[in-house]
Amino acid sequence: MKAIVFEAPGSTPVLAEVDLAHPKAGEVEVTITAAGVCHSDLHVISGDWDISTPVVLGHEGSGVVSALGPGVTDLEIGDHVVLSWVPACGVCRYCLAGRPAQCVLVAEVVAPLGVLHDGTSRLTQQGRTLHHYLGVSSFAERVVVPVSGAIRVRKDAPLDVLALVGCAVATGVGAVTKTANVQPGSTVAVIGCGGVGLNCIQGARLAGAARIVAVDIMPEKLELARRLGATDVIDSSSTDAVKALKEAVPEGLDYVFDAIGKISTTEQAIAALGLGGAAVIVGLPPTGQHARFDPLALAEADQRILGSNYGSVVPQRDIPWLVDLYMSGELDLESLVSARRPLSEAPEALADLAAGRALRQLLIGSPTPIETE
């Protein structure tokens, strides 16, 4: 099959022929319908994160189950699925506590080693092992994933746009509704109006926030933020974000979401809080960076700093719920899509994202029908 292979930091991802082994026990093969292009992929390319290479990129995707490994009974060939980049084991202490985003197997094996649950890869190229990215590797025509990483969804929903639910939508909406548990009537700010930030805005709207302030440096993203639920917008390219937020909401904000993950935006999120407010770190910074804040001021104001991994969602429960919200018209996914491109244009799509020329781009897979015999 064809896939996008990344050799190491400093190289350019390329479209290549690779081999995909059949699924083993507890795994399924999925033929990819669409894969979303996310900033997390850029972190890998730039060397911000230390991951195993060579690797097949992509961690946001949707598709159709095309083969089952031994013992799989939860899914059937032909099922429509959204891929989850937290293919939880289901048996560690965090999974049993209802926190699969902290799964020990994912944190210690799948993510850092670039393999599946058994510690091996299903991907090879001319005899050498290729690594899986976050247990997904959706920049490919087909993938093999643990069954917990393929979430069955309703078949009447357009499968291509559902790819976004697997990362951007779950992360953004979940950060608001699950991690922070934003209450009706709250005041909310979102710093960064990319794919995740715009879904934080949608989450705040769904939660009934009274004020939703969007902060970004690009006017077109701020315009889209208004369409998706922002009540106020701040162009931080021409003003100090913290000062503008305090002027917009003089009593201080109940929640500020950093959807970028730069040290500067994390510090802005904390500085803009009101009494009892919570700063929620959603965007992920490069490894090893540290933010500064005044702990005395934080304590005296009874404020909190919350980390949000994957929006604190439970994929098997929350991904179908998010799809239902989309189908009922409560979530707007189509407005998030700035382009649909073939898999072969993944390098160009990544370059456009890095340059700020794109929002969420979908790499569209082959329309070849799935055999279900």
Rank of each mutant, 00 (worst) to 15 (best):
L322N: 02
V136A: 05
I364F: 12
I191D: 06
G195V: 01
I260A: 12
T231V: 04
H290C: 09
K2Y: 05
P100F: 07
G166E: 03
V233F: 11
A339H: 07
L20E: 02
C89K: 03
I263H: 10
A230T: 04
D235M: 07
L113Y: 07
A111V: 02
V65W: 06
V30A: 06
K2H: 12
D240W: 14
T287H: 05
D118F: 05
A214Y: 07
K243G: 09
L325T: 03
R304P: 04
P367C: 04
I191R: 15
A210L: 04
A354F: 09
Q361F: 12
D318G: 06
I281V: 05
G172R: 12
P54F: 03
A271C: 06
L273P: 01
S186M: 13
S308G: 01
L224G: 08
L228I: 01
G192R: 14
V215P: 07
E300L: 14
V64H: 07
A67E: 14
T265I: 10
W321V: 05
E267R: 11
R128M: 09
A259V: 03
Q289G: 00
V143R: 14
P87A: 03
E247K: 14
D324I: 03
A163H: 13
I4H: 08
T171D: 00
S66G: 06
Q202A: 10
V313I: 15
R341P: 04
P146N: 14
A349R: 07
L20H: 12
T372N: 02
P184A: 05
A339S: 03
S338Q: 05
N181S: 15
A168N: 06
D332A: 12
T53A: 15
E223S: 08
L296N: 05
H59R: 00
T372D: 00
W49F: 11
Y133R: 10
N181I: 02
V242W: 11
A140P: 11
E108K: 13
V44G: 14
I45G: 08
V104H: 08
H22L: 14
V242Q: 06
R99K: 14
T53C: 15
D352W: 13
S66Y: 10
A269Y: 09
L273S: 08
V153M: 09
L359M: 13
V313Q: 09
T177G: 00
I364R: 03
L322M: 11
N199R: 09
A16S: 15
E27Y: 00
L322K: 02
E267P: 10
V55L: 04
V182A: 07
V44P: 14
G90D: 13
A88K: 04
L228N: 03
D240L: 01
L228A: 04
Y133P: 06
A21M: 12
L273N: 05
H43L: 14
V313D: 00
